[in-house]
């Protein structure tokens, strides 16, 4: 029991606690490519701290408006507990991959409901875009994870982490990993797919009416996505050697996650934003070619 709690706390510290730091590092990377100094690495923490004391403006009395940020971060925390970092997730006894996917969608649902509650037309546009992004990205992610699941004959993360599928390279897993990587960019809300938030077009879309602590929670949840999805990518699709000691596995995973996030960051910096119809067409192609290919390979046993 104590061990389980310890594991949960550890994974939360890494995936949630360090998430703003990851964002800070990405901003620094962005600044380097922009030829500028850039903010301090801990700036996301400072932003969140600042937002906590800012006035909380509410354009509506709706109860949904108040609940949405906490629900979003809450669901993200549960997702973090279900996320493998080099080893089985801490909360593996509570849910499997499908539960993971659904709790991740629940966080997005909280964002969208919170947006719709504000009544702002831009929030509606943003919420609608957020949903459409989910619709185009989630299938890719699901297919990629299904490939792993079919190969490992289990839909639980601990079964998956224990199976040789995640530690030995295979063609289908590589293809699935590429698909997941392509989905990652949008899943993390990075350019060219930060369409839902698009500050120049619809002024942060779902968050347009947000200020203060509610916004802080949403921001943190968005930062946490960085860690969670890259952790899944690295743990499941990158065949890392098992070092025997869970902590070492975790550190190795974190290091590779850093590389993945840096890649995501570079793509983010050298691209303009796509339109929603363009990105949907893009992911439709990814689904049809890459994911289905991986699925086919997995089923024939490669």
């Amino acid at each position: 029991m104590a061990r389980a709690i310890l594991e949960i706390v550890l994974s939360l510290v890494i995936l949630i606690g360090l998430a703003p730091l990851a964002e800070g590092l990405l901003r620094k990377l962005k600044a380097i490519i922009h030829s500028r100094q850039g903010p301090p690495i801990i700036q996301p923490y400072l932003d969140i701290a600042k937002l906590l004391v800012k006035e909380d403006l509410a354009p509506t009395e709706s109860w949904m408006w108040r609940v949405a940020p906490a629900l979003c971060l809450g669901a993200t925390i549960v997702v973090a507990m279900l996320t493998p970092i080099g080893g089985p997730p801490a909360f593996a006894f509570g849910g499997d991959i499908i539960v993971f996917i659904y709790f991740a969608s629940l966080a997005a649902v909280a964002i969208i409901l919170g947006a719709f509650a504000s009544g702002n037309p831009y929030a509606y546009v943003g919420g609608s875009r957020e949903m459409m992004m989910m619709l185009s990205v989630e299938p890719v992610m699901t297919i990629a994870l299904a490939v792993a699941a079919i190969k490992a004959q289990t839909l639980t993360f601990d079964g998956l982490m224990a199976s040789p599928v995640t530690s030995t390279p295979s063609i289908s897993m590589v293809v699935a990993g590429v698909a997941f990587l392509l989905a990652l960019q949008a899943q993390l809300g990075k350019l060219p797919f930060d369409i839902a938030e698009a500050d120049q077009e619809i002024m942060e879309g779902p968050f347009i009416e947000r200020s203060g602590p509610g916004f802080a929670l949403f921001r943190w949840a968005m930062h946490a996505r960085l860690m969670i999805f890259s952790a899944v990518l690295v743990s499941v699709f990158v065949p890392l050697p098992n070092l025997g000691i869970p902590v070492l596995n975790m550190v190795l995973t974190l290091a590779v996650m850093g590389v993945v996030l840096a890649l995501v960051g570079v793509v983010d910096v050298v691209n303009p934003r796509l339109r929603i119809d363009q990105s949907m067409a893009y992911y439709a192609r990814v689904v049809v070619f890459v994911s289905v290919l991986a699925l086919a390979l997995a089923i024939v046993g490669h």
Binding site: S35, V269, V270
Partner: peptide
């Protein structure tokens, strides 16, 4: 594009 960025170095 990346080359243009990196060639400049940090200027601010």
């Amino acid at each position: 594009e990346a080359l243009i960025c990196f060639k400049a170095g940090r200027v601010t």
